[in-house]
Design a protein around this nucleic acid. Structure first.
Length: 835
RNA sequence: GCCCGGGUGGCGGAAUGGCAUACGCGGGGGACUUAAAAUCCCCUGUCCUUUACAGGACGUGUGGGUUCGACCCCCACCCCGGGCACCA
């Protein structure tokens, strides 16, 4: 009698898989492929059980697919550039390269300890020149096509750090390291990728993936892109040649416009103020509004403020003269930075106009309620259904939708407006004034201007031993050997670009590189990528619902346009797993509530950890870590081991049941019970793995099968050992994707060799799952009143008569005549009595 | 405010419109043991009737509806979680 020794078993089988190259996946046209991907980790600190859930889910599915005969590409790599390495360097003087490599080694050790089925030959690390070289290559291709461009843009600047801050480093409008120092807005030249060119495609192509992606992720992306249809309309400024262009989705309400509002940053504001009657006070007010950087939490609740510029605009439809105001809630970056204020039909305009006593004029009257009065109404009427236009000259009587169409056309014909689609999505700013990232491959020559680094000079390598102390410039600017470079065109001395790329660039295409990770001629071989793509299943956290996944989709479209790939969308199915919590909050080092993955594995074995992770909650929900429940999982594996161990000697030499010529009707009762249970379980678990991903329910089913076996002890009596062996094998195979190590061990103990992956998933037999008799629930008026056993194969009518003939049922009916009898074969009979 | 999720025993959670609470945890009782641990067996939604065997009523956030039948579908509401949010 052996003892379940997880550590020894896990080590043993990991070695075997390694030696057999069990999970090597090479493109093979003869076999069906499956690309299983989990989001690559940022290697930092120690790995805890919160990290492991993602990989456990992915690994169970990958192993299931292997067993189903797929050739599974299941790679792993490292999102290795980024701020923490740089901060460690600044704070502790460690080389970011060194720090990152140590972390990777640690992460890799943990992943190996858990026996995940990765093809480690495919490993990539984004901070290595072999990888980021292709970031640079993609950048150059985008530069050629005008997708990469430079423009001045506002950044967060901390005057104390003398450096640029990322948005997440701004806390309450102050620097994260200097809580008393307000962050300033500064304009500097930055590189952008024109994702807005693809806004429409990113929206439209969602229909290719909507069956495989969670609806909420698609909704979040849709909102992020923020398409809105409307019109641009130009208002002339009275007494000047200037015009103000506004964007509106409700051109139908233009007769109700009672002011034009400009964003404080609008370029026309200074001109209007200088040439008008603006007082010094107005200028001061303008300054105040312009400088105010609102904290994110404040934006929604902030008081609306503004002032009159002293100038008027002319409504191009009515010719009416309306005042031009500057208002703090008008966004400079959206639309045209100016809008027409229609207080009667817009909540924000209403609030603003009431505050400053600007007139409110109703131009759309609701059809379903009493007519509104602008002077007295307390809530604007903003819906565009169920309304009709009034006070709008020739457009009176139209519905808003009709009016929008007609007025847009008229504006266009009369030359003061046009239809316009506006997106919330902005171009992707990729410049980072940081060291630990991909250098942007551009050279500035005093004679020739900005030039791309020629392809044959890639990669532009990150220099080593750079002084990372903040100076207000990009760290690379302080490395003369890096900066000073000959112009590739004229040979004069020029300067390299010293900004590095956003790390989202790294992760926007890494999954392509996995297919062909060592290619030094191209980012990847197109044919190999064609074999593996699209990704069949991607698993990761909901935190990446927008940026990473949107950028990945964008990159694929650009790659398609370059001619590298032929697909529109890289990811067919996406799954977002829940977080692992302890004490109701996500595990994190800073909270001090982490359960170390290695510690867990040493105490219970990684199979127990994997089992618990999948059993404790459905994979999409958050999971609360419970030490007691983990004990339960450990106990289950011990019982499983003991049960198999107790029979192993007897069964080892027995040939497992062959279905050829096997007739279940001749089997013993014990055999029938066990075979049926096993096949019923198999049917449901197969479905759980293939479609539903209810792994917690799968585990429960296996536990039930186990309990069923246990209940049939002694197993050495009343059943052919070949049957017992078959059922044991099925149980072991079914749990193998979840707890692979113990499964291999038990499989071997049962006398099998060659490994589970090679053997494959068990065959399902409908005839073996079928019951000979069923318990029929008898309901009277929908309430359960009796149960009886009935042989299978009864038709509805036969079943009805059988039930009605039952003496117990007859007594319950007590002579009343049934008004209706509902019969559900194999399940129930509901007798409806007249009341 | 808008858009998604979700609300089931003491807890984590099961349930193609068909026996609500599978499976696990916890709890109670028992067996084994000198004892404990481990292991094994039994019980474990609430209330009521009954000496007992049994039986009944209620029960999936609340209120309605559809249906022979609703945790599941529809309507309204309450609560919790998440996302977005002056986007004109």
């Amino acid at each position: 009698m052996g003892q379940y020794d997880p550590r020894a078993i896990e080590e043993k089988w990991q070695k075997v898989w390694d030696e057999q190259h069990a999970f090597y996946a090479d493109a093979d046209p003869a076999r069906p492929k499956y690309y299983m991907l989990e989001m690559l980790p940022y290697p930092s600190g120690t790995m805890h059980m919160g990290h492991m859930r993602n990989y456990t889910i992915g690994d169970a599915v990958a192993r299931f697919r292997w067993m189903r005969g797929f050739n599974v590409l299941h790679p792993m790599g490292w999102d290795a550039f980024g701020l923490p390495a740089e901060n460690a360097a600044i704070q502790r003087g460690i080389d970011p390269r060194e720090w990152t490599r140590l972390n990777i080694a640690e992460f890799k050790r943990v992943l190996k300890r858990f026996g995940f089925s990765y093809d480690w030959r495919k490993e990539i690390s984004t901070c290595e020149p072999e990888y980021y070289r292709w970031n640079q290559w993609f950048f150059l291709r985008m530069l050629e096509r005008g997708i990469a461009y430079r423009k001045k843009s506002r950044v967060n600047w901390c005057p104390k750090c003398q450096t640029v801050l990322a948005n997440e480093q701004v806390v309450n409008g102050c620097c994260w390291r200097h809580e008393d120092t307000l962050v300033e807005a500064r304009e500097i030249e930055q590189w952008f990728l024109k994702i807005t060119d693809y806004a429409e495609q990113l929206l439209a192509d969602m229909k290719e993936i909507e069956d495989g992606w969670p609806e909420r992720v698609l909704t979040m992306q849709r909102n992020w892109i923020g398409k809105s249809k409307g019109a641009r309309v130009r208002f002339r400024v009275e007494g000047s040649d200037e015009t103000i262009e506004v964007f509106t989705t409700r051109i139908d309400t233009i007769y109700g416009a009672t002011s034009v509002l400009l964003s404080p940053e609008h370029p026309l504001v200074p001109k209007l103020l200088d040439s008008g009657s603006a007082s010094a006070q107005d200028h001061a007010e303008w300054d105040r509004l312009r400088k105010r950087v609102l904290k994110t939490e404040e934006i929604a609740t902030a008081e609306k403020e503004g002032f009159f510029t002293g100038r008027y605009a002319l409504n191009p439809f009515s010719g009416e003269k309306i005042p031009i105001w500057v208002a703090n809630f008008v966004l400079a970056e959206y639309g045209t930075g100016a809008l027409m204020s229609v207080p009667a039909h817009d909540e924000r305009d209403f609030e603003f106009s009431r505050k400053y006593n600007l007139p409110v004029r109703v131009v759309v009257q609701p059809l379903n309620s009493a007519p509104l009065n602008g002077a007295t109404m307390s809530v604007p009427f903003s819906e565009h259904e169920h309304g009709t236009l009034v006070g709008s000259g020739p457009y009176n009587g139209l519905s808003p939708d009709e009016a929008i169409e007609k007025m847009t056309a008229d504006a266009e014909a009369r030359g003061f407006g046009n239809a316009q689609i506006t997106y919330r999505l902005k171009d992707w700013g990729i410049s980072r004034q940081r060291y630990w990232g991909t250098p942007i491959p551009v050279i500035y020559c005093p004679k020739c201007g900005m030039l791309p680094v020629p392809d044959d000079q890639l990669p532009v390598k990150l220099p080593e031993k750079v002084d990372l102390v903040e100076t207000g410039k990009s760290p690379l600017a302080t490395a003369p050997d890096f900066v000073n470079v000959k112009c590739p065109k004229c040979g004069e001395m020029g300067r390299r670009e010293t900004d590095t790329m956003d790390t989202f660039v790294d992760s926007a295409w890494y999954f392509y590189r996995y297919c062909d990770p060592h290619n030094d001629k191209a980012p990847f071989d197109e044919e190999i990528v064609r074999h593996w793509f699209p990704i069949d299943q991607y698993v990761g956290g909901i935190t990446h619902a927008i940026l990473h996944l949107l950028y990945s989709r964008f990159f694929t479209k650009v790659m398609r346009d370059i001619g590298l790939v032929k697909i529109n969308e890289p990811i067919t199915r996406l799954f977002t797993q829940g977080m692992v919590q302890k004490g109701g909050v996500a595990m994190s080092k800073s909270r001090g509530n982490v359960v170390g993955a290695v510690e867990m594995a040493e105490q219970y074995g990684c199979d127990t950890g994997r089992l618990y992770t999948l059993f404790a909650a459905p994979p999409e929900k958050d999971l609360e870590w419970s030490e007691q429940a983990i004990e339960g999982c450990s106990r289950f594996l011990q019982r499983l081991y003991r049960l198999v161990d107790a029979q192993a000697e007897r069964l080892r030499g027995v040939k497992s049941l062959s279905y050829d010529g096997f007739d279940i009707s001749k089997a013993t009762l014990k055999e029938k019970i066990l075979l049926r249970k096993a096949h019923q379980t198999l049917k449901r678990i197969t479905r759980d793995f293939e479609q539903r991903w209810h792994f917690n329910a799968s585990v429960a089913l296996i536990m039930e099968l186990f309990n069923g076996l246990h209940a049939q002890e002694p197993l050495s009596e009343g059943a052919n050992p070949a049957v017992i062996k078959k059922v044991f094998e099925m149980m072991v195979l079914m749990i193998a994707p979840i707890t692979p190590h113990i499964s291999e061990e038990l499989w071997e103990m049962l006398g099998n060799s060659g490994g589970i992956i090679k053997y494959g998933w068990p065959d399902y037999r409908e005839d073996l799952a079928a019951e000979e008799e069923y318990e029929i629930v008898v309901q009277i008026n929908g309430k359960v009143r009796a149960k009886l056993m009935v042989a299978d194969g009864q038709g509805e009518e036969e079943l009805r008569q059988l039930v009605m003939a039952d003496p117990h049922v007859a007594a319950l009916i007590a002579g009343k005549s049934p008004a209706k009898v509902i019969v559900v074969p194999k399940r129930l009979v509901n007798i409806v009595l007249k009341s």
